[in-house]
Design a protein around this nucleic acid. Structure first.
Lengths: 197, 197
DNA sequence: CGGCGTTTTGAGAGAGCTCAACATCGGTGG
DNA sequence: CCACCGATGTTGAGCTCTCTCAAAACGCCG
């Protein structure tokens, strides 16, 4: 999934910053400098309530961008803290906005990226409203299976479990049962949905 | 939450369409006419796998927009079907794109709306990864409580339960228990988070 | 060969879901 | 005015399903 083409001309304007685990990238209320791309590691966005407890808004991993909305606000609306050692690239607000104004193509690409994200996120949210592990796996295979409902595992099953919002044990068991039932076919890294049971 | 300012100048260009329950708004593969705003009722976005079973991508209700990504694609990538009687307004693609090109302010507003949605959706997704009903309620109150972590119920508790991804029974019980414990204070339509227990 | 992470399988418990009954409230019509 | 009705709000009991904790097999790499 190439979300990585909208910055085309402005990539050069990016400034890389190195963060240690626990280090703060920005705080709620501080002046919005721009949006960030996570190059490596994990960065969590949180808000802290008055009793000092933090509520996580999102955990961003490699390749994700954060604080897109800050382009349209004067200050950040949450805290960003590195959960692990991390590298991020800052795309300064002024540069981006100027580019969008000057070059409609860039604005176009950025909007397209955001729209795609909205779609993806809505789909994931819908997926999470499915309680049965089996149905959730089927939902995933149906939507992500390119040809003949077969998907090639890009990473590990553990990662897939995380994306599905299941524990890895639950996923292993579910896949095993589905294979046993003949609902799926699994061989070296690909899973194919066969029929509905 | 005012997502409803980006169309400012183009609202007039909208065309209202009336749908009966079960009626199809558009099909996967058909030419993308533009994006829709749901004025009333519910419209579901689905994809159908080869065995004819549908997988739901999203169910859009009043005030939501659907098919934003179609602005940047030649055809729709899923089906849209009215789940109830519904009214929608079509914003023609060409009109919107022309407006964005001509008027950076409009493009700006549209991007801002999308960025806000991305943020909201990520937050909701994070919320769904909290399994305990109590923690989920607390997460919600922390993030949506304007002053002093108090929120005014906009709709019914049932609706809140749906937004939280809980059954209404679970929510009722959880709220009752939290009140009993002194974790929240509830009176005529407002809920206030008091302390952490 | 000896770690290290993934993949599996086992057993147990907790928490939310489901089904069900009932209370409550507001609106409607006789 | 009151009976009726539908939707929301509330509580009860049981069950299922996933999560959690544990342990072992497997594969990969130094």
């Amino acid at each position: 999934m190439s979300e990585a083409d909208w910055f085309g001309t402005v990539r050069a304007a990016g400034v890389v910053r190195r963060l240690k685990a626990g280090e703060c990238l920005f705080r709620q209320g501080s002046r919005a400098l721009g949006l960030f791309e996570v190059l490596d590691g994990k960065v969590r966005l949180t808000r802290v309530d008055s009793s000092g407890r933090e509520a996580v808004l999102h955990v961003a991993g490699r390749g994700e961008t954060i604080a897109e909305a800050s382009l349209f606000a004067a200050s950040y609306h949450c805290d960003a803290i590195a959960s692990t050692d991390a590298n991020v690239r800052l795309y300064p607000k002024a540069t981006l906005l100027a580019e969008f104004e000057r070059n409609p193509k860039a604005a176009h690409a950025f909007m397209a990226m955001l729209a795609r994200q909205v779609m993806t996120l809505r789909t994931r949210l819908e997926q999470r409203s499915i309680h049965s592990a089996r149905e959730r796996v089927r939902h995933y295979l149906t939507l992500h299976g390119a040809d003949r409902r077969a998907i090639v595992l890009s990473g590990t099953l553990k990662e897939l479990a995380a994306e599905l919002g299941l524990t890895h044990e639950a996923l292993y068991r579910t896949l095993a049962r589905m294979q046993q039932d003949g609902a799926i076919d699994r061989r070296d890294g690909t899973i194919r949905l066969l029929r509905i049971l």
